[in-house]
Design a protein around this nucleic acid. Structure first.
Length: 492
RNA sequence: CGGGGUGUAGCGCAGCCCGGUAGCGCGCUUCGUUCGGGACGAAGAGGUCGUAGGUUCGAAUCCUGCCACCCCGACCA
C-alpha cells in the first residue's frame, strides 16, 4: 500500500487525518491552522456549492459580496456578538512593509499604522447590517434576501482539517424582513433547505432542532441547527440558521417606513454552512479503504479501467470504454476513463477506491469476448459481471440511485442504533462512557444545569429537536420537571 | 492557553546518544520487460540537515536562544 491509512478502530481521529490526505482532499499549509484544499477536495466542495446555490436561488435569494475587512468599531456595536467572537479575531494594524535596516527581508513600517484597526471577518453580520442601513428605507425594500459565498477567519486554538480551520470557506445568508413572523419563517425555511441538502445530496440523516441558550449564536434570539452523527458516535453541527430579532437593526440603526408611515426596526436572519460539511461527508460514509462518496456529490461518478496486454487490445478496449463514457455522459453521469498506460489495473482499483468513486467499471479482452463488463460498487464492495448491453441505463437509473439511498440508509441505521434514552444521570453517564452516541433525556431548561453536565461528562445539548413530542418527565441532573426530551451528545 | 512531539531530497523516515563532510523507502527522469487487485530490472537527477549564535582543527550530531508546524487537553458562535 502506497498510502497507508490508520484503521478506524485503531484511532478514529488519525484515520480521519490520514484519509483526508490520502484521498487528496486537503493538506496542511505552511500557515498555522490553515489548509490547502486540493483539486479533488475542491471539486466536491464545488458540487456542494452548486447545489446549495441553486436551492438558495429557488427560494428567492441573490448573491452579493461584502468586504473581507471590518472596522473594529463595527464589531463592538452588538454587545453579545463581540463577546462571542472577540477572542478569535485576526486584526490588521498596518498597511505597509519596508526593507529592514539590516537588509534581511522586510519589516512592518511603524509609520503605516492604521487609524482604526480592521478585523478579518469572522462572520459578516456587522459589515452587512451597516450596509443594509443605506439599502433599506421603506417596507417596499423588504424582504432583502442576500447570500454571500466567502472565506472567513476565526483564530482557533486547535484546528483540524475541514472540521475546524482558522480560515474556512462558507456561505452566509443575511436577510431583512418587515415582521418577526416573516423572519422566523425565513429562518425555518433555510433550516429546511439545509436539512434537504444534507439528507438528499450528502446522504447524511440530520436532526433538526433549536439550540439551547448556551449554544446559541452570539447576537441571535434563536439558533436553529441540523445535527449529524459521525461514525464514532460524536455529533457534528452541520448547519445553522439564526433568527436575529432586531438586535442588528438596532445596533446599526436600520429602520424602515411601514405602509402607515411609521418608523420601525427591521427583523433579521442569518444562516450558513461551511467547508466543515466536507468533514461530515468523510466521517459519515467512509471506511478503512478510503473515501466513500454519495453519487450526488462525487466529482467522478463512474471510473473506467481498461485491462489489456497489447497495443491493439489497448486501442480496442479504450475505444470501447470511450464509447460507453459518451453514452453515460449523455445520460447525465460524470465519467473518467483511466487510460493511463503507466499504472497497472490493481493500482488504479486501489486509487479510485481511496478516492471514493461510487462505481468502477473494468473491461478486458476476456469480458469483451463474452459481451460482459465488470462493475464494482464502492459502498458495498460488490463486484459483478454484467452484459455490456444495457449497462449505461442500469448504472444511470439503477446503480447510482441505489448507492445514494444505500449510503443514507446505512448512516440512518448507524445513528438509530446509537441513539439512546436515558432517564437517570447514572444511566446517562454510563452510555456516554461505554457506548457514545446521541442521548435523549429530560433537562430542566436552565443553562446552569447544561453547564454542569458539560463539565462532568463533556456532553452538551446538541439541540431541542423540532419533532420531539411533549412528554412530561424529570431532569436527569436536578430532578426538576421537564416537558420534553432534548438531544445530548459529545460534539466536534 | 497548558502538556507532549517534530523540523534532514517532492513525500515518509534513518543517522544524533558516541562529532570526521549525508543515507534508505516511495515518488521523479530515461530505456526495456510487464499489465484481470497498489509490477520488475538497469541507468540517472535531486539536500543552505528549520533558524541565529556558541564550543571545536572539524557540527545534521554537543551547548544556548529563537522560529515554525503537528498531536493531546482546555476553549470553540
Amino acid at each position: 500500500m502506497a498510502n497507508k491509512i490508520t484503521s478506524r478502530s485503531e484511532n478514529y481521529s488519525e484515520w480521519y487525518n490520514d484519509l483526508v490526505k490520502a484521498a487528496d482532499l486537503a493538506e496542511h499549509s505552511s500557515v498555522r491552522g490553515c489548509m490547502v484544499i486540493k483539486p479533488y477536495g475542491y471539486a466536491i466542495w464545488e458540487k456542494m456549492q452548486a447545489q446549495l446555490d441553486k436551492m438558495f436561488k429557488e427560494t428567492g435569494h441573490q448573491n452579493a459580496y461584502f468586504p473581507l475587512l471590518i472596522p473594529k468599531s463595527f464589531l463592538s456595536k452588538e454587545a453579545q456578538h463581540v463577546d462571542g467572537f472577540a477572542k478569535e479575531c485576526a486584526v490588521v494594524t498596518h498597511h505597509r512593509l519596508k526593507n529592514s535596516p539590516d537588509g534581511k527581508g522586510v519589516i512592518v513600517d511603524p509609520e503605516a499604522k492604521l487609524e482604526e484597526e480592521l478585523i478579518i471577518r469572522p462572520t459578516s453580520e456587522t459589515i452587512i447590517w451597516n450596509t443594509y442601513r443605506d439599502w433599506i428605507q421603506s417596507y417596499r425594500d423588504l424582504p432583502l434576501l442576500i447570500n454571500q459565498w466567502a472565506n472567513v477567519m476565526r483564530w482557533e486554538l486547535r484546528t483540524r482539517l475541514f472540521l475546524r480551520t482558522a480560515e474556512f470557506l462558507w456561505q452566509e445568508g443575511h436577510t431583512a424582513h418587515a415582521t418577526a413572523e416573516e423572519a422566523i419563517a425565513e429562518t425555518k425555511q433555510m433550516l429546511e433547505v439545509y436539512a434537504t441538502f444534507a439528507e438528499e445530496f450528502m446522504a447524511i440523516p440530520v436532526i433538526k432542532g433549536v439550540k439551547s441558550e448556551n449554544e446559541r449564536f452570539a447576537g441571535a434570539l434563536d439558533t436553529y441547527c441540523i445535527e449529524a452523527m459521525m461514525q464514532d458516535g460524536k455529533a457534528l453541527q452541520a448547519g445553522t440558521s439564526h433568527f436575529l430579532g432586531q438586535n442588528f437593526a438596532k445596533a446599526f440603526d436600520v429602520m424602515f417606513s411601514t405602509k402607515e408611515n411609521k418608523q420601525e426596526y427591521v427583523w433579521a436572519t442569518s444562516w450558513g454552512v461551511s467547508t466543515r460539511l466536507m468533514g461530515a461527508l468523510v466521517m459519515t460514509h467512509s471506511d478503512d479503504d478510503g473515501l466513500v462518496l454519495p453519487p450526488a456529490l462525487a466529482p467522478i461518478q463512474v471510473v473506467m479501467v481498461p485491462i489489456y496486454k497489447t497495443d491493439e487490445e489497448y486501442d480496442l478496449i479504450v475505444g470501447k470504454l470511450n464509447d460507453l463514457a459518451s453514452a453515460l455522459k449523455i445520460a447525465g453521469v460524470t465519467v473518467k476513463v483511466d487510460s493511463d498506460r503507466q499504472k497497472k489495473p490493481g493500482w488504479k482499483f486501489a486509487e479510485w477506491e481511496l478516492k471514493g468513486v461510487p462505481v468502477r467499471i473494468a473491461l478486458g479482452p476476456r469480458d469483451l469476448e463474452q459481451g460482459n463488463i465488470e462493475m464494482a460498487r464502492r459502498d458495498t464492495k460488490e463486484k459483478a459481471s454484467l452484459p455490456i448491453e444495457g449497462i449505461v441505463d442500469k448504472i444511470a437509473r439503477e446503480v447510482l440511485p441505489s448507492i445514494q439511498s444505500n449510503l443514507h440508509q446505512r448512516a440512518l441505521e448507524m445513528r438509530n442504533s446509537r441513539t439512546y434514552r436515558a432517564d437517570t444521570y447514572a444511566e446517562f453517564k454510563e452510555i456516554l462512557e461505554q457506548k457514545g452516541g446521541f442521548i435523549l433525556a429530560h433537562w430542566d431548561g436552565t443553562p446552569e444545569t447544561e453547564q454542569k453536565i458539560k463539565e462532568e461528562t463533556k456532553a452538551t445539548i446538541r439541540c431541542i429537536p423540532l419533532d420531539s413530542p411533549s412528554e412530561s418527565g424529570t431532569c436527569i441532573y436536578t430532578g426538576k420537571p421537564s416537558e420534553r426530551r432534548v438531544l445530548f451528545a459529545e460534539a466536534y
